[in-house]
Nucleic acid binder design. Structure first.
Length: 275
DNA sequence: CTCCAGGAATGAA
DNA sequence: TTCATTCATGGA
């Protein structure tokens, strides 16, 4: 299935952007994507996205990639005098805020605390394999969907195999709490009330709550502050950073700053020790 | 070996 | 209210 995108979008950058932890890079620049109980293989060729999936699922993936949002128009509203942000925008053209499953993001970002991105991926994959809910196969290998709160709750005694460490009890209590929660009702809440509700979950603090809001509930003004954002703000906003200045797109701004800080750290590391 | 990773809970001050 | 400490695990 060939889908034409008439705006800039960069699969590789999105894959590196620390919001999606189940993308699997295949041969020939293809990626296996999974969300809810659907999967597809996608490849980028210029301004084309080539999907291998049912025609009827194309709207799902359009929404997943947030294609109805005009990112160029939003970026055009960023303050021109913010030189660092403008540099980040130039280097990080093509990132998006994906529309991912809110419940999966709750667990993913609870697991993420004090972990590197590769080890987060490993943990999430272990959870999915343990849950054993296949939705298809590719090259004879099963593709698993993410377990529901009820399913995760039922496998609580086996979760110790997933390298969760001290986060194990957080994951179990989140599953217990979310069994009876209505995502639809949470969707209706304003940002502040949603943040408050999420922080009632054991193991969800301010940073994880804002990640769930941005990457799970698509609240584009949520501003997660992690170690990379702290570095970016120290390095480039010594006079202070007011994220209200970037409303209602502070979350997208945060994503540009996150990506650019990591790129720039990688660059200086290479300059110091080219190997 | 040490240090760090998309932090949060807990208790002290 | 803000702080210091503790919490497992894996990779560099």
């Amino acid at each position: 299935m060939n889908y034409i995108i008439n705006e800039t979008l960069d699969l590789k950058k999105i894959e590196e952007s620390g919001q999606c932890f189940r993308w699997k890079a295949l041969e020939n620049d293809k990626y296996l994507l999974i969300t809810k109980n659907k999967y597809t293989v996608v490849k980028q060729s210029g301004n084309h996205l080539l999907f291998s999936c049912d025609q009827k699922d194309i709207p799902l993936w359009e929404h997943y990639f947030d294609l109805q949002t005009d990112y160029e128009a939003i970026i055009d509203q960023f303050p021109k005098e913010d030189r660092w942000l403008q540099q980040a925008v130039r280097h990080q053209t093509g990132i998006r805020i994906l529309n991912q499953d809110p419940w999966e993001m709750v667990i993913t970002f609870i697991v993420s605390q004090r972990k590197s991105i590769p080890t987060i991926k490993t943990c999430i994959e272990k959870i999915c394999e343990l849950a054993d809910q296949p939705i298809g196969t590719i090259d004879d290998k099963k593709i698993f969907r993410f377990p529901s709160p009820e399913e995760l709750w039922k496998m609580r005694d086996q979760l110790e195999r997933c390298s969760l460490g001290y986060r194990l009890k957080y994951v179990i209590s989140a599953a217990e709490a979310m069994r009876s929660a209505s995502i639809e009702e949470l969707e209706l809440l304003p940002d502040s009330a949603l943040e408050q509700k999420l922080m009632e979950i054991h193991g969800v603090g301010k940073k994880v709550a804002s990640c769930i809001m941005l990457f799970g509930f698509h609240r584009m003004n949520a501003f997660p502050v992690d170690v990379w954002i702290n570095r970016a703000l120290e390095h480039h906003y010594p006079e202070g950073f007011r994220h209200e200045r970037y409303a209602p797109w502070a979350g997208l701004v945060q994503q540009f700053l996150f990506m650019e800080e990591r790129r720039s750290a990688k660059e200086s590391k290479y300059a110091e020790n080219p190997s």
